[in-house]
Design a protein around this nucleic acid. Structure first.
Lengths: 341, 341
DNA sequence: ACAGGTGGGGAAAACGTATTCCGGATTGTG
DNA sequence: CACAATCCGGAATACGTTTTCCCCACCTGT
């Protein structure tokens, strides 16, 4: 028995079975640049198949550049994140890399710890979809850690904020949100309430600006709320209880918030879109399943995931910024406000 | 520079900085059973922190038992799977293991290939949430591969089917579905149509039996459909076009199918639950967000994920079977059928 | 004072693979 | 036919860590 901890078939055994040296076997099985004789190659492949040999990636990683891509996310159950992660996994598989995921639940302390843990894999790249800012104490230490990782030859890709010193791919929150504002303006809405999430989320601030600009004047009121279904529900319930006044549309920072808002409207008997239009942002699959089907902005999450991997795998460039803009999807939760047009 | 492929700070450097041997440094940093002198331990920890040392898991894996748990799933964007995966990740983290995920899109060929790929990590355990049967050609080869992996000291945990020769954790599809049938019977439903998925999915067959038994007589018609939102929509649309007759309830094999059914009902102007009750299965988060809110069976996915990891990490037992039963969640998509009670 | 035990330190041998040499054979060129 | 160039196989080394083995110093009970 070779070693108690890993009783597995090794390259040495394959080589022995094929009657060649380990070097030759490695060259055949490892996709080396060196050529090996046809007969020997055949026998190695045969022996490997017969013995069910699979390479040990740990051992391989000690000589070769690793194929690992480490991924840190906030929460894998968030639909948009799940789509991005799934796309990354697909793309990585296509290029023979693999991803390990870790969820941080948005906790900065866990983010830092997670990055340190993942660095233990010596991954080729680190993709961070967690939102983070370098302004907090943890954020600064995280940035420091990431720089150290880059100095050691790694590549950092961030999804979310664009103003990071690394490769960044992000949604054009401002431009995409503008589309919503313009749509509402074009359908005669003048007074809207924005369920704007919390101010510390940078994407929320950019979207609120976009909504406002797109509307181009009119009366915009911004209400803070937790970025979740529950947050949207609670904020909307409060709003309705206080009286909607002349508010004609509820603009949510997020599909989840919008869906919460729809629930609250239904519970309070407010007709959507008859009395109130509601819009979302993201176009998660769920958006087409609620009633009324949600008008929102579709973000190409799958493409984002694929691009993250793409960036992660092309090293030796200056950090690059890519910005993707969403497309407006008009469904049933918005309607024309009469009396204006 | 130690090696071009991994320019990183090694244990040797930490040991040198601390003025001790690598053996001592390893004992301090690696959590060895052997004790080291207080002074030396302090200096090693200090040096490690100063140099930002992180252990190289690849190198460590060559001597120690690996901490990796490999996870193969069908599709990470499926809400129920996402919940299970997230729970696994949490639980694994709590015990210092880590999870690598791979999606197979339900393709048996990819399942086999994925298992082989993941075995390259020499993981401590392999968790398979993909549904698979040993009856197909690929299934048989997969089983063979998994047995080989177990012989090499690995542990296989399956989530889904219970009749596997490995550790298995599964939903009591039959018993849980019974709850739905009983609820419908208690609310006066006599004639139902089951949107039963495809017959090759074993869980579907068990649920259909459960629904039928729970109803305890009455008229049950089973309609095949793809297990997805679209499948539910299409089947329901066909059903409505052909005329509902005296059918009082639509029993979907799945929340997603049920949500598709709801969409089709809405599109065709069929009142739910006034004219037709609709039920689901799983209680994905979405189920509470559609209109009407879906009556369904809640499956404790988070607990399932945690238990999978638990099983994966306690080796050296006979294979164990755990079965979890769901709990009925009555919401708004079912109503009493008058004239019977 | 001495034998036996104990606790802790270091040298060195693994672990499985990729790669760098090196040497022998074969081929191409004059 | 001589010589260089090319090709291919194998021995050996390196990767970073854990662990075994050995040794030394110190303690303790007689």
């Amino acid at each position: 028995m070779p070693h108690p901890a890993r009783p597995t078939v090794t390259l040495r055994e394959v080589a022995a079975a094929a009657g060649v040296s380990v070097a030759t076997a490695s060259r055949v099985l490892g996709g080396s640049s060196r050529t090996v004789g046809g007969e020997n190659a055949r026998r190695v492949l045969e022996a490997a198949a017969a013995l069910r040999y699979t390479v040990d990636v740990s051992a391989r990683a000690m000589r070769r550049k690793s194929d690992a891509i480490a991924l840190v996310a906030d929460d894998l159950t968030t639909p948009s994140i799940a789509q991005v992660v799934a796309a990354m996994e697909r793309r990585a598989r296509a290029v023979d890399a693999f991803v390990t995921v870790s969820a941080t639940r948005g906790d900065p302390a866990r983010q830092l710890e997670t990055v340190r843990t993942l660095c233990a894999f010596r991954p080729r790249a680190l993709v961070i979809t967690s939102s983070w800012t370098a302004t907090t104490a943890y954020g600064a230490r995280l940035a420091e850690e990431l720089f150290a990782y880059e100095r050691r030859g790694g590549r950092v890709v961030t999804y979310g904020d664009l103003d990071t010193p690394f490769d960044a791919i992000g949604v054009d929150d401002h431009g995409s949100a503008r589309l919503v504002g313009e749509h509402l303006a074009a359908t005669g809405h003048r007074r809207i309430v924005v369920l704007g999430g919390t101010r510390d989320r940078t994407f929320a601030a950019a979207r609120v600006r976009g909504f406002t600009e797109g509307l181009g004047g009119g009366d915009v009121r911004v209400v803070d709320c937790e970025v979740s279904r529950e947050g949207g529900y609670a904020a909307t319930a409060r709003l309705i209880a206080a009286g909607l006044g002349e508010t004609g549309a509820l603009v949510a920072v997020n599909d989840l918030v919008a869906i919460g808002a729809l629930s609250a409207c239904r519970a309070a008997g407010v007709d959507v879109p008859g009395r109130l239009s509601v819009t979302g942002f993201d176009d998660i699959p769920l958006a087409a399943d609620v009633t009324p089907r949600l008008t929102t902005v579709a973000i190409p999450f799958a493409e984002i995931g694929a691009r993250c991997i793409q960036l992660a795998l092309t090293p030796g460039r200056a950090p690059e910024r890519q910005r993707v803009t969403g497309t407006l999807v008009v469904r049933d939760s918005t309607s024309m406000r009469s009396g204006v047009i």
